[in-house]
Design a protein around this nucleic acid. Structure first.
Lengths: 199, 199, 199, 199
DNA sequence: TATGAATGAGTTTTCATTCAT
DNA sequence: TATGAATGAAAACTCATTCAT
């Protein structure tokens, strides 16, 4: 019921695409199965039920995105703004990345019965984002004259910017998202520069 | 099929609540009718079908919100940051305002078959927001030393901030949204102050 | 409920067309009303219910067709074959004559609940056809050397031919029906000639 | 969805009976399923939808009847009139043969949406009838002094007679149909005798 | 004479799920 | 691991009919 198999993975893929595109209620197991090339009851050899399938898709998408957060912040060098690497990554991946698309959609509008579990996961992701950004900021700032409260505030701002970026990605295209990021990044960079150069 | 009637309005109300809470696919006409206190087929005396009902709810919610944008910007006095009135209004209204809740939800995750119409309406709303903010900014800035391009960029930033605010409203609560607005507003205010005081 | 009025007649017309095209079960009062330009409940100001409307359409179509039988046989001069006038009339009228079309259809496949009444009416029509043909044959035959049994048999043949003609009219076009009539008329004429010239 | 199974066949049988008796619009899947002894949704494991079920019933009835045409003409010995075997078979089978009953009904009054496909199938049947009769006539005539045009005309007459026979079967009973056949057969036989003995 | 509103009964169809194989 | 068959529940929608106006 749980072990990895080629079919198992193909189901996750197809489900991710369907759930991302049409949501929980708008996706039917028939269509998902048909996209995989199997019949509907065969899904039950891999997943207990629709909820379990949905939650597994969510779990994997969340893990993948959290790993991506860690990696992007790790790999970004001495960029102008902390977190720029991950923002760029979001924009770059969105079009072809169903799990990410799914993650954004279900975080905004989780199916009522799964809301608690999903909210909890989503919050973990946001906390990770916030904490990672703060750590980076704390590390990279020339003059570390910002206290923890201030740093956390910038962390909240960064998370807000990422949210606004994801929204733009969800309902329009990459270009507009890139434009928004440029604008928002400027806001953040200005504020940081202003704050750190104050004294 | 078109004229206002008490029942008509009550259907719109109930539908708005259901669609906001459970989305298009998760809402059933049976439940909506039952919330109104009529039987399912009676809905069809007022609306051609589920799509038409959904779109009417959307249309009214959109009109109402656009009117609210105009009103909030009109009524805000010499506030610190242009657009603060509308942001506050969003936060204040969200919990008890089903049409607004519905509007945000459907704009981010429209039912696949209605996506085009809804995207178009949502874009009108965002454009209005952008343009209204820019007009206000242009009017209220002490030294009008900002060119059109710069003003438009701040407009885009404001729209992004509103988006991030709405996201927070959609998936958490008013308090966190208020906190986010405080942070983001500071970003925007700093940037504006910095820009206008430059010369 | 019964008196003639412009609307009453227009309802009959529209109903005739719908019933002829789609049958009893396939026709809806909504569509009929809409074809008339009124709302569905308004139909009930003119007819007690769907059955009554159907039966009234049937009654008028039957009356009209019976009158046509009488007229065609009256007006046909010393044609080659008795009954040729009516056969020609059938072919000529079919395309633009909804009541006739309706009559044929409902006679073959009456709605189960109305079967008895319709069968009875249809039989009246066939009897009229048979008797009128026989009278004509009896009158017009040069040598009246055919006994009643023989004449009745030709009457049955004529009715059979009319049936086959109507079938052709119902499911194909006027041209093919005309061709069939030419062939069948020859059969009948030959037989008559053969029989009357025997002695 | 395609392969034969006991249930599949029982559905076809029940559907054939219902469609024959009440037509497309007058038959409901609920009743058909209940006649089979299964629940309504189970039908969809065997047929895509009502149309597909109807067309499958039609297809099988048509095939069966075409095979019957071939067989009857094959097996008829040196009967008085070519085609007598098939006419007798029609009369004999009608009461107890649902597919035949269905075939006649739907050919005369096909559901509006399926008219094209059904007309096409019905025409194939009529063509087969015509051609088979002509072949038989050509083979069995003592003096083959009839040209092709004449033979085809007798073919058309035969098809017309079969039509009139089927009409009689559809809306009255076997006895009257037998009587009509006796009369029409005489017409045809006389004409043939007359034509072939001419020279 | 006409209609807006309402409705019980019914339609076809889809759904997630189960189970024997 | 996969599936054909089956099903209860529920979906959206249509229907003929009623009734107050």
């Amino acid at each position: 019921m749980q072990a990895r198999s080629p079919t198992y993975d193909r189901i996750l893929e197809a489900a991710s695409a369907h759930f991302a595109e049409r949501g929980y209620d708008g996706s039917s197991l028939t269509h998902i199965a048909s996209a995989v090339g199997i019949r509907k009851p065969s899904l039950y050899a891999h997943f207990a039920n629709k909820n379990a399938l949905y939650m597994e898709v969510f779990k994997q998408a969340l893990q993948q995105e959290c790993a991506m957060v860690a990696r992007c912040f790790d790999e970004e060098g001495g960029v102008a703004t902390p977190g720029a690497g991950y923002a760029d990554s979001l924009i770059a991946r969105h079009a072809s990345n169903e799990p990410l698309h799914f993650l954004l959609r279900t975080s905004y509008t989780p199916p009522a019965e799964l809301r608690v579990a999903i909210d909890e996961g989503h919050e973990r992701y946001l906390d990770l984002l916030h904490d990672t950004f703060c750590a980076k900021l704390r590390a990279c700032v020339q003059a570390a004259n910002l206290d923890d409260a201030a740093i956390s505030q910038y962390g909240q701002a960064y998370v807000g910017i990422i949210d606004s970026l994801q929204v733009k990605l969800v309902y329009t295209d990459r270009e507009q998202a890139a434009a928004r990021w440029a604008v928002m990044q400027r806001l953040l960079a200005d504020a940081l520069e202003h704050a750190t150069s104050k004294e």
